[in-house]
Amino acid sequence: MLAKTGDKKALEEIIIKFTPFIVKTAKRTYIRGYEYRDLIQIGQVSVIKAVNMFDVNRIGSFTTYVMNAITRNFYNLIRCNVKEGCCCSLNSIIDCGAELIDVIPSEENLEEGFEKKEERMLLKKGLDNLSLKEKEIIYWFYFENKTLNDYAKAKGICYRTAVERKKKALEKLRGNFYGNL
């Protein structure tokens, strides 16, 4: 093995051979404080160390040895980084003197949630005020997504009657809904 004896060209060829694996491993690794290029360099250093430490009299494969060395070095770096981790609590005091939890923007809009709840309550109340036939046509059309023509056929009424029944039910709902806002 020429690279082990100090042949720089042979060592470069080995590093180039393992660069795709290093890049793939670096892309799926996140270590706080390290950039993508840093991880690639660490992987390349791992290859150099593996070449120097590999025992040519071993029975195992050199390729497997190097790939395991790269992976183990990334894992070791992750472990060391986790041990150095900082304490971060939502109740930590930040620079402006406020707690961290107080300055985190919320995507939840409480007002919108209350409005939707109120609208559902008004709609339920409005549905309760409809006659059985009106409830039936609203359910048929809006919840079962069936046509008025099918409703008219199923109930043995003319299409125009079905249209008027739906129209009357919607007017009642609208009046009940907007009358209470």
Rank of each mutant, 00 (worst) to 15 (best):
L11S: 05
V45M: 03
K135N: 06
E84I: 08
R37T: 14
R120W: 07
R174H: 05
S131D: 05
L39K: 03
L170G: 01
G60T: 14
M53Y: 11
K168M: 07
E99H: 12
V163I: 00
V82S: 04
Q44L: 02
G126I: 02
N109P: 02
E35G: 13
E136Y: 02
R72V: 08
I59M: 13
G156A: 03
R165Y: 06
K49C: 01
L181T: 13
R165P: 01
F143K: 06
G85R: 10
S92G: 11
I138W: 00
E35C: 09
L77I: 10
L122C: 01
K4D: 07
N149Q: 15
E84S: 10
I137R: 00
I48P: 01
S106V: 12
I138N: 02
F18W: 10
N176I: 08
V103H: 13
A10N: 10
G175W: 00
G113T: 11
K124S: 03
S131N: 03
V45Q: 09
E136C: 00
I70K: 07
E84N: 15
E35W: 05
P105Y: 07
K17Q: 10
G85H: 08
A50G: 08
N109W: 11
V56N: 02
A152S: 12
S46Y: 05
F143G: 10
G43K: 01
L148G: 02
R32H: 09
K166M: 06
T5L: 13
Y36V: 03
A26W: 00
R28D: 13
K116H: 04
V66D: 09
L123P: 03
D38L: 09
T71L: 04
I70D: 03
E84V: 14
K133T: 04
K9N: 15
I31C: 05
C96S: 15
E136R: 02
F18M: 07
G113Q: 13
K49P: 00
A50P: 02
S46P: 05
V51R: 04
K49S: 06
V23Y: 02
A50D: 00
C86H: 14
E99T: 09
G6Q: 07
I104M: 12
V82G: 04
I101N: 11
I104L: 12
V66P: 01
G113K: 15
I78H: 05
E119W: 06
S131K: 00
E12N: 15
E134H: 04
N149D: 00
T25D: 08
V51C: 08
S61F: 06
E107L: 12
T63E: 13
T25H: 02
T71N: 07
N91H: 12
K172M: 06
E119M: 15
V51L: 01
R37E: 12
R72P: 01
L39D: 05
R37Q: 11
R160C: 07
I14M: 12
Y65D: 06
T5H: 15
S131F: 01
Y151E: 10
L127W: 02
V47F: 03
